[in-house]
Computed example of a mutant assay.
Amino acid sequence: MEAETVSKKWEGKVSAGLPIPTTAAQVWPFLEDFCNLHKWLPSVDTCYQVDGISGQPGMIRYCAATITASSTSSGRDETMIKWAKEKLLTIDPIKRCLSYEVLDNNVGLKSYVATMIVLPIDGDGIHGCKIEWSFVSDPIEGWRLEDWVSFLEPSLQSMAKNIQDALLLL
């Protein structure tokens, strides 16, 4: 009997609520602009289009973040750039959702596809809205699924807060 060599896919979802009077229609334009992730996700330093037609499936963006880590051997902090090229797979302004896949990266993501959707909390929007970020991926070397979800959760919470703050300025 052959040993199983295929790892089970990871699947997960995190969500962040935005309070009343925020509606899904108000939040969607912030996510719909696929190349402005750096404006809303605090850990991303830069995000820009590298190929394709803006806002259309097939468009590719480059995202990067500067990570500072302590080096025990040198006693100094080391800075590195973590980056990813991501392809917009679908975008639906009626359902207020988009999906994308990571094409290339130095983060350790393999076969990573994510969907972001903005939904009214109670179906009619009276009680605010929420952003859901779901994913399916191969396991990430050196991570547990719980660790990855725990990384995404505060990232999305920060994104939601930044969007909420921007809406207050409008």
Rank of each mutant, 00 (worst) to 15 (best):
P21D: 13
V107K: 01
P57A: 03
W10R: 04
E153Q: 10
S158G: 14
V136C: 05
K87V: 10
L98V: 01
V113Q: 00
E11S: 15
D122T: 04
D122H: 12
R76K: 12
P154K: 01
V102N: 07
I53E: 14
L98C: 10
T23Y: 06
L98Q: 10
T22D: 00
E78H: 10
L41Q: 12
T22K: 07
S15W: 03
E32Y: 07
A16H: 04
E141P: 08
K85M: 11
K161M: 10
L103A: 09
I131E: 03
V50R: 14
C47V: 00
N105I: 03
T90M: 03
C63P: 04
D51E: 15
I140V: 13
V50P: 03
A65Q: 09
N106F: 06
I131S: 08
W133D: 11
C35Q: 03
V136K: 04
I121Y: 11
A166Q: 07
M159R: 00
C129R: 02
E101P: 02
G52V: 06
K130C: 08
W83H: 12
W143A: 04
S155R: 13
K82F: 02
S7E: 15
S155T: 13
Q164A: 09
A160R: 00
I60F: 01
S15Q: 04
Q26L: 11
E141L: 13
L152W: 11
L103N: 01
G55I: 07
F30N: 02
M159K: 01
I126S: 15
